[in-house]
C-alpha cells in the first residue's frame, strides 16, 4: 500500500487532471508520435528547437495517469533546456524509473516518478514521452513504440 502511495503522489494526480503544455504547437520544427501498443496509449510531441535549445514544447494524446503526468512534467522541465541538458535528464530519468535510484544531479520535479520503479509493468507508461522525445530530436519519422 505504501508503494501505491509512492506511485500515485498528489503531484501525479494534479498533472493528470490538468496536464501542462497540452495541445498542438503549430510552429513546431520537431515532432514525433509515440505508442504503447500494449495499452493503446498514444502521444504526439511537438517542439521548437532554436540554436540547440528547446524554446517551446507541447504534447497531446491519451494515456493513463502515469503516462500523462510524466509527459506533462517532462514538458515543464525541458522548456528552455539545451539539447545536451535534455539528454542528461533523459538518462537520469531512465535510471530513476528503472532502478529507483535518484541520479547524482538534480532532476527537479521529475523525482516524483521514482515510485514507478516498484511497478515494472508501469515503467513503459512513464517512459513513453521520453522515448518520443528521443525520436523527435533525432528527427525520426517512424512512430516510436514502447515495445
Amino acid at each position: 500500500m505504501s508503494d501505491l502511495r509512492e506511485l500515485y503522489q498528489e503531484v501525479i494526480f494534479d498533472h493528470n487532471r490538468h496536464p501542462r503544455n497540452f495541445g498542438k504547437l503549430v510552429k513546431a520544427n520537431r515532432h514525433a508520435e509515440g505508442f504503447n501498443p500494449l495499452c493503446g496509449d498514444s502521444l504526439d510531441l511537438y517542439l521548437i528547437v532554436d540554436n540547440d535549445r528547446i524554446t517551446d514544447i507541447k504534447f497531446e494524446g491519451q494515456g493513463c495517469a502515469i503516462s500523462t503526468a510524466s509527459a506533462s512534467l517532462m514538458t515543464e522541465v525541458l522548456k528552455g533546456k539545451t539539447l545536451t541538458e535534455a539528454e542528461q535528464l533523459f538518462e537520469g530519468f531512465h535510471q530513476m524509473v528503472t532502478t529507483g535510484q535518484q541520479p547524482s544531479f538534480d532532476i527537479g520535479k521529475l523525482s516524483v516518478l521514482a515510485g514507478v520503479s516498484e511497478f515494472p509493468a508501469r515503467v513503459k507508461c512513464a517512459s513513453l514521452s521520453w522515448h518520443t522525445l528521443h525520436a523527435a530530436l533525432n528527427n525520426s519519422n517512424q512512430p516510436v513504440t514502447t515495445e
Partner: peptide, 21 residues
C-alpha cells in the same frame, strides 16, 4: 480513470484483472 491505473490499484489489493485492448 484510465484502465491501466485501475489495474495497478486492484493489483495492490491482490485482485488480478486484465487491462488493455
Amino acid at each position: 480513470v484510465h484502465p491501466h491505473d485501475i489495474g495497478t490499484i486492484l493489483d495492490s489489493e491482490g485482485v488480478a484483472i486484465r487491462t488493455g485492448h
